[in-house]
Design a protein around this nucleic acid. Structure first.
Lengths: 229, 229
DNA sequence: TGACTTCGTGTGAATGTTACACTTTCATCA
DNA sequence: TGATGAAAGTGTAACATTCACACGAAGTCA
């Protein structure tokens, strides 16, 4: 069923940079391409936008198809439109970045992807197309955003300790943070609700578990806050 | 000369939100559409992306064609891809925003545009397509960016007074700023070079003119700074 | 019960932000 | 030519925020 237009048209794709946090470092979800071009190379999950779906819908669909991830935090990142970024023909790609909690890591490769796998951001393999540049842009954005919006919580499980939260900030920002100052600052937002439970993990004092207050969380996310370390 | 594809493809356009500053308030450059749809309605300058030009190149070309503006500060804003945002067919638009100095206001309408005209952001007419939403996104972005990158200077002529700079910040941010605190902060960046000239304008003390140091300016623009008011 | 490991807590110095009012310099006009 | 008007230009004290820094508490395990 061919489609004809007066002028040539670029193909339109979406690509997703999926960040995860495993307690130690920041991770990115990559797929191994099952089809040419760049067959068997690692790449960002993504694919073509259908004529009747929005860009965000396409990103969510591709993410589900290729990695099994659903209901993630997803935000538009940037649109990459270099003329030769795809060897086949002109392809413009709208990039998104996603943040997923470890609990949602029910990843399974599917169509177009031979395999899906997490990589630490410190050890990314060679990537297909201009995906290295896209990943770079996403990392910069994540770092910037983390300091003025509380999106970091999207990367943590529903119940977490302050140390886990601090490790996340340290991993993303790539700096060490003073424990006392970090706690003071985070708690001053009045965003965290201490739970009755404690987190037992080894032969030491158990840590207080927290969840965040969804109402205040949404408010802060819109208004923006300032997390200077 | 028709072009045929296996699957239907969205058309790809760019739209530009052009901000200017006239000493009083923030202005936006709009064109009156010469062709349907929305014929004779006001709209953002923009148009279709050619198959062999980058997105930014398309934005610059359309800007020159429709408004006569060249060599402006241009940055990608967001990509708008709602399925029904264009009544004709599926059109995805990559939006850019531009900042222009008053001196560059050599605007002249041309192809596709019957007329180009500056409007104060406080009095925008009804706009074609989803251009009101695009403009809104651009304003939010400009406000945010102004507080952590020194892009405000792109809106001023090469020589300017501190009062002009303050008026700009006040106009964009929509707040009043204390004169002494503003000067203290701006000068502390060590970014402004006082000129030998003064700016004479009416029956009162003339104002010191400044230009900004291009080297430090570029450095700050990349690193980011924090302009909290 | 002693050794080990992580959790959890406070203070003082330094820095940055805010609020606030008067003198200076020029042009104009009486 | 001196009085007037209008914007330019300048400092300080109260307050808030950030930063550097060290030790007892609570648990497990041998």
């Amino acid at each position: 069923m061919p489609h004809t237009y007066q002028y040539p048209r670029a193909a339109l794709t979406v690509d997703c940079v999926v960040f995860g946090f495993d307690g130690g470092g920041l991770q990115v979800l990559l797929i191994r391409r099952a089809l040419p071009p760049f067959k068997n190379k690692w790449a960002l999950p993504g694919g073509f936008v259908r004529i009747d779906e929005t860009l965000a819908a396409a990103a969510r669909r591709e993410l589900a198809e290729e990695t099994g991830l659903r209901d993630v935090f997803l935000e538009q990142l940037y649109t990459f439109g270099d003329v030769k970024r795809d060897p086949r023909e002109r392809v413009v790609s709208v990039a998104y970045y996603a943040l997923v909690k470890p609990a949602d890591h029910t990843t399974a490769a599917a169509t177009d992807a031979a395999e899906a796998k997490w990589f630490p951001v410190s050890a990314i393999p060679q990537l297909a197309f201009d995906h290295a540049a896209i990943l770079d842009t996403a990392l910069t954005r994540l770092r910037g955003k983390l300091t003025y919006q509380p999106i970091g919580f999207e990367l943590l499980p529903p119940k977490f300790t302050l140390t886990q939260l601090q490790r996340l900030y340290e991993a993303v920002l790539g700096t060490d943070i003073d424990k006392r100052n970090f706690r003071k600052k985070v708690l001053s937002f009045d965003l965290l609700i201490p739970l009755k439970e404690k987190h037992r993990d080894g032969a030491h004092r158990p840590a207080q578990l927290y969840r965040f207050d969804p109402v205040k969380y949404e408010r802060l996310k819109k208004r923006g806050f300032l997390f200077e370390i």
